[in-house]
Structures are given as structure tokens and as C-alpha cells.
Amino acid sequence: MILHIISGGETGGSKNHLLSLLQELPKDQVELAVLQEGRLAEEARAFGITVHSFQQSSRYDVSAIQKLKKLIEAKHVKIVHSHGPRANLFVFFVKKMTKFYWMTTIHSDPTLDFVKGGIKGRVFTALNRSVFSSIDHFFAVSERFKQMLVTLGIPAEKISVIYNGIDFTTPDSPNITRTELGVEEESFVITMVARLHPIKNYPDAFELIRKLREKGHSVELLAVGDGPLKEDLHQQVKAYEGIHFLGFRTDVDAVLRQSDCLLLASTSESFPLVLLEAAKAKIPVLTTDVGGVRELIQSDEMGAVVPVHGIDEMVLEIERLIGRKAQGVLSEGGQALYEHASNHYSVTQLAKATWHTYQQHME
């Protein structure tokens, strides 16, 4: 038996990564444990995945440690696969009391997971880093993240690079119109699908829109997501025009189909699933140079990769894409991105490579 464990409160890329993976793995051999109820557990159950919920009274409720230990022993779990700092910490304590092989997927830069968290953030960052020496094997979702782990002292032979993937065959959400989204039909629509979190760097996206509109371009930004900076960002955006907050949505694919390009302005990422979602929607992407994005963006027609905080470079690249739209060739880049991504970043390859690694350690 293989047990995945995650906090359970995730709503973004790590949630989608895990759900995509679990749907492809044998449901009679793989189960999920969460430390709290949320969308992740609800969706997992809807997919027929067995979910064990420890339902902590708070994130400091350590009763989940004994519950996790009992579950591992009762199910004769051979491999525990953790996701995220909170799950890592609980598995660390359980591993001292019972035997299993521990794997973890690194979804984000562990030095930045608690950025702007003050003293608590620094404590949690140090705790997360301290458990790494007890983990038996690491999954990195890009070659760049593997190198980051090596610089943190993880032996290269303990790291497998397995790229993220999505199901390019799932049915689309019902179509929506630009009018329903509150944007003008003739605008160049840029969509950003990201948590309202410091790492996602929304202020640079706002400044990009300001500069483009200042230069006379009819551009609008759709911000899809929720998060801890919601109030702050809503205050900031009052100084800008052409920016629309859509909040959390379950029809991201429909929003992307009404967009001209996807924007990723993050200061740190691993291999963002949202880039693959843009590829499925057949629109080009503009992304900062984070994680494994260069391994996806293979040509100028597919989009562009710019430096972190490279607002001037972003402006130039959006102007280039605006020009491609005027020439009627913007969609060709989206098609090229779709063909490359669907051939190399499917959920099938993600599950196959993960299962192969499990089998190497199931004896």
C-alpha cells in the first residue's frame, strides 16, 4: 500500500498535481490522507479515491501524528509519499516510530514557502529544511528544481525528475463570453491564474498593464485566484485600470479560451501546471524565468520567458504578441504550444514514471 499525505487546504497547483496523479494510479493500492478537509478531499472522493481525514483542530494539533502512525500500521503501508512542509513535518515524527519508505514531491522552493511569514515563517522554514535528511527519496518537477535540492545538500542519486502533467483529453467547461467576464471584445486579454500570494508577484502584473495602457494599448488583466493577499491587492488595484479579479473558479479552462495569452509573473515556481492549462487552451504564455518553464517554451511563437521583475521585457513581449494577433497568427503559437505540451507533459507519463519509481522501492 502507498499512502499520499498532504495538508488538505491546497487550492492551486499542488492540489491539481496530486489529484491528476492519483486518478491515474491503482486505486486499490494508493490512498490519500489529509490533515484538514477542503476542496482537495472533496474532489478526491468524487474521483473514487479513498481519503483518510485527520481533521486537526488547528495546525498545531499533534494528535494527527498518532492517527497517521495507526493508519500506516493498519494498512501495512510500504511507501509514504508526502506533499508540502506541514505533511513533511508529521511524517518526520511518525517515521521515528514505525517503518516505511518515505518519498516527497517538492512543489515549491522550500526557502520561500513561508515568505513574509515573520518569525513563524522563519521557524517553519527551518523545521521543513531540518526534516530533509530523513526523507528517502525526492521527486523534483523540473531539472532546475533538482539542482536546487542538490545545493541544499540532497544527494543527486536521491532525486528523480518527473515533469508535471495534465490530462489533455478531459472535457471542456461550458463556454463563457468576454461580456460575462467583464472585458471588452476588442481588448488584448491577459489572464493570470495564481494564488493571491507574495510569490505570485501580482504587483508586477498590475504595473505591466499600466505601462501597456499608458502606451495606448487596449489591454485588460483577468486575475483568477484567491489567497492571503486578497485585501491588500484589492486596495492596490484601485490605482489601476483594466484589472478584474475573478476569484477562485472551477472553469479556468473557459476563462483561458477567452484570453489572448497567459501571464505568470512569479518570483519562484517548480513547473507550473497553469502553463499546461494554457497549452490545452491553445494560447501562448508569457512567464518569468522560474523553475522548468524554459523546458516547455520552445519557440517565440509559443510565448516568451523573461527575467523575474523584468517588467520592461514583459511590455515588449506583450507588444510582440499584440502584433501577432493583429497579423492573425497568434493562434498558431497557441497550437504549437498545445502540440508540444500534449506530447511531452501528459498525466500518463507523470503516473507511469512515478509508479516505476515506487516499484523500485516496494520490495
Rank of each mutant, 00 (worst) to 15 (best):
L246Y: 05
S218G: 02
L263I: 04
Q258L: 11
K230C: 05
L233R: 08
V219F: 00
V255N: 03
L221M: 02
E269P: 12
L264M: 15
L222D: 03
S268V: 02
Y240W: 07
H217N: 11
A223Y: 04
K215M: 06
L286A: 06
F245W: 13
L276A: 07
Q236I: 07
S270Q: 11
V252E: 14
L273H: 13
V224C: 11
Q236T: 08
I283N: 07
P272G: 14
L264I: 15
L275W: 03
A281T: 04
R249W: 06
G227W: 12
K215F: 02
L256M: 15
P272L: 11
S266L: 08
S268F: 01
L246M: 10
A239D: 08
V252G: 14
A239E: 11
A239M: 02
P228F: 11
L262K: 05
S266E: 04
V255D: 04
E214S: 10
G216H: 07
I243Y: 00
Q258V: 04
R257V: 12
H234D: 10
G227R: 04
K230Q: 13
Y240G: 02
S268I: 01
G247R: 09
E241Q: 15
V274W: 09
V224K: 10
S218T: 08
L229T: 03
P228H: 04
D260R: 09
E220K: 02
A279G: 11
D253A: 09
K280Y: 06
A254M: 08
Y240D: 00
I283P: 11
L246V: 09
P272S: 15
D226H: 05
G242D: 02
A254C: 07
P284I: 10
T267L: 09
L262R: 09
E220F: 00
D260S: 13
D253C: 03
A278N: 13
A281G: 06
G227T: 03
S266Q: 05
V219G: 01
S268Y: 00
D253T: 05
A239S: 10
F248W: 12
V285N: 04
E241M: 08
G216A: 14
P284T: 07
F245Y: 14
P272V: 13
K215S: 14
